[in-house]
Amino acid sequence: MDSLVVLVLCLSCLLLLSLWRQSSGRGKLPPGPTPLPVIGNILQIGIKDISKSLTNLSKVYGPVFTLYFGLKPIVVLHGYEAVKEALIDLGEEFSGRGIFPLAERANRGFGIVFSNGKKWKEIRRFSLMTLRNFGMGKRSIEDRVQEEARCLVEELRKTKASPCDPTFILGCAPCNVICSIIFHKRFDYKDQQFLNLMEKLNENIKILSSPWIQICNNFSPIIDYFPGTHNKLLKNVAFMKSYILEKVKEHQESMDMNNPQDFIDCFLMKMEKEKHNQPSEFTIESLENTAVDLFGAGTETTSTTLRYALLLLLKHPEVTAKVQEEIERVIGRNRSPCMQDRSHMPYTDAVVHEVQRYIDLLPTSLPHAVTCDIKFRNYLIPKGTTILISLTSVLHDNKEFPNPEMFDPHHFLDEGGNFKKSKYFMPFSAGKRICVGEALAGMELFLFLTSILQNFNLKSLVDPKNLDTTPVVNGFASVPPFYQLCFIPV
């Protein structure tokens, strides 16, 4: 009986604490739906499609509103004006990374994606500088992407125009580009180590996009005490870190300090320079996690976009025909596509942009946080508050993009057929937390897609009208449904 009384008292205290925290903070924060004790607004949000729920709530509470995930307040920004004001106009104040408990377990605050403060700034600055020195957006990395595009075309030829699921092959190409940047090595598509790495990356994007992960991140005790797919994700990350550590040891034994070959060499050189400046942010643990982040951000996002792009091109054969006509006119058949071609191919450029806009790969991006107490639109948001960005509300804005739910390359073309930029184009987020590999991803999408369409016609196994382009999961990332196609050599 005594234990029951204690339990009831504990629960009562928890409920009172929950109510007090919510009521004391709500006077400062933007308005929002009334949260339930302990669980907050979790029942009012469709976990399978958070973005749709945010759109519905914005119609009631406006472009800036507050939700509670458990006891934790989260300020939501919906629509271009609110997102721009926060991420661009007040970029420094909104540059923090929001709480992501599962990532905390995986990387302990290291790396480039989930770190904060001085650690994040130094690692991000170093990573950007190193990638630029190796030619991100310049010639040397373009050579690597072109080489991988040629290998991709050869792998597709091996399908002999038979029906195939493109998931694996389209994942190999961007993964190999990242391998060449980090390890100075590309792998054969049949290499077992490479296959294991690909498998872990593919599993992780599916797990991260599941409703279960949303629950884990908002009720963090689940991570330590409950079984579930989150444990598989943590094991996959541990596998990748151990693999990278092996490569780091190989580099330490063979590195030429006067001739760095890749990202690992550059990081080890930085560690050597910083060894007298303790404590340094440049450690082996930081290198492991930064490399894992580059793999995660640079492989599955690009391969998922490529997979979605081919599905949309199957669905819209008239678009595919126009792209192939432009390829034939500008590039021809006797040389590989290059980035200089893009400025002469406005329709193809528009298609690449429209694919990214339409699929809305990361509907709410990753959570941000404010780095200080900030007054925002007459609300006071306390330091450390998590900020949720609705990228969907920007990419699918119906004023900027008429009929935003329709796939239409003319969203990025003017009346004369010239490519038209849009400030609403934010597939990689915006501001200080914009994806480090934005330029690389854009290069890969253009070169891989043009190389495929230069060499193959795409054949659907069903009537294009019957192809479903609805994402199968739409949590962290929008993942396309399973499909097969035939690559018919031109």
Rank of each mutant, 00 (worst) to 15 (best):
V5C: 15
L7R: 10
C10H: 05
L11A: 10
S12R: 09
C13K: 13
L19R: 14
R21T: 13
R21L: 12
Q22L: 12
Q22N: 12
Q22C: 13
S23L: 12
R26N: 12
G27K: 13
P31H: 08
G32C: 03
P33S: 02
T34M: 13
G40V: 02
L43G: 14
L43N: 09
I45D: 05
D49L: 03
I50V: 13
I50L: 11
S51I: 08
S51P: 13
L54I: 15
L54F: 13
N56I: 09
K59I: 09
Y61T: 02
P63T: 09
V64T: 07
L67C: 10
G70L: 06
P73R: 05
I74S: 03
I74G: 02
V75K: 00
V76K: 00
V76C: 12
V76A: 04
L77N: 01
L77W: 03
L77G: 01
E81I: 06
E81V: 07
E85L: 09
A86D: 03
A86G: 12
I88F: 09
D89R: 05
D89I: 08
L90E: 13
E92C: 08
E92I: 09
E93M: 05
F94N: 05
F94M: 11
G96K: 06
G96M: 10
F100L: 14
A103Y: 15
A103D: 15
N107Q: 15
R108N: 15
G109C: 06
V113R: 02
S115A: 14
N116P: 04
K119I: 05
K119P: 12
W120N: 12
K121D: 06
E122N: 13
I123V: 15
R124N: 05
R124P: 00
R124I: 03
L128F: 09
L128T: 14
N133S: 11
M136G: 12
K138E: 12
K138T: 14
D143C: 12
E147K: 07
E147Y: 06
A149K: 00
A149V: 02
R150A: 12
E154V: 07
K158Y: 04
T159A: 04
T159V: 03
K160P: 00
P163F: 05
C164V: 13
C164E: 02
D165Y: 01
D165W: 01
F168I: 05
G171Y: 06
C175G: 04
F183A: 03
H184Y: 05
K185L: 02
R186T: 03
D188K: 05
D188L: 03
K190V: 05
Q192E: 14
Q192D: 10
Q193S: 11
F194I: 05
L195G: 06
L197D: 02
K200F: 05
L201T: 08
N202R: 12
K206L: 05
W212G: 07
Q214T: 11
C216F: 14
N218P: 12
S220I: 13
I222F: 14
F226P: 06
P227L: 10
T229N: 14
T229V: 15
K232I: 07
K235T: 08
K235D: 09
K235G: 08
V237R: 09
Y243V: 15
I244S: 03
I244V: 14
K247M: 08
Q252T: 08
Q252K: 15
E253W: 06
E253C: 09
M255P: 09
M257D: 14
N258E: 13
N259T: 09
P260E: 08
P260S: 07
D262H: 03
D262G: 14
D262S: 14
F263K: 01
C266E: 09
C266L: 12
C266S: 10
F267T: 04
K270A: 12
M271H: 08
M271F: 06
K273G: 10
E274P: 07
H276V: 10
N277H: 12
E281C: 09
I284N: 06
I284E: 07
E285T: 08
L287K: 00
N289H: 11
G296M: 06
G298H: 01
G298D: 00
E300C: 10
T301A: 06
T302N: 03
T302R: 00
T305N: 05
R307M: 00
Y308G: 05
A309T: 08
L314E: 00
K315S: 04
Q324E: 05
E325S: 14
E326T: 00
E328F: 14
R329L: 13
V330A: 10
I331V: 11
I331N: 02
S336R: 08
D341M: 08
S343A: 15
D349T: 15
D349R: 15
V352Y: 09
V352I: 14
V352H: 02
E354L: 01
Q356P: 02
R357Y: 02
D360S: 13
L362C: 04
P363H: 05
P363G: 06
P363N: 04
L366T: 12
P367N: 10
C372E: 15
D373R: 03
K375D: 05
K375P: 10
F376H: 06
K383I: 04
K383T: 06
T385Q: 06
T386G: 07
T386I: 08
L391M: 13
L391C: 08
T392F: 08
L395S: 08
D397Y: 08
N398E: 15
N398D: 13
K399L: 09
K399T: 12
E400S: 09
E400C: 09
F401L: 04
E405K: 09
M406E: 13
F407R: 00
D408Q: 04
D408V: 01
P409M: 02
P409V: 07
P409I: 04
F412H: 03
N418V: 07
F419K: 06
F425V: 05
M426A: 12
F428I: 04
S429H: 03
K432I: 05
K432R: 12
I434A: 15
I434F: 15
V436H: 05
V436M: 15
L440G: 00
T450K: 01
T450H: 00
T450D: 01
S451I: 07
S451D: 03
L453M: 07
K459E: 10
S460E: 01
S460Q: 03
L461Q: 10
V462A: 08
D463I: 04
D463V: 04
P464H: 07
L467R: 01
T469A: 10
T469G: 04
T469L: 12
T470M: 09
V473N: 14
N474Y: 07
N474E: 10
G475L: 07
F476K: 04
F476Q: 15
A477Y: 07
A477I: 10
V479T: 12
V479G: 13
P481N: 04
Y483R: 01
Y483F: 12
Q484L: 05
C486I: 07
C486F: 03
I488V: 15
P489T: 02
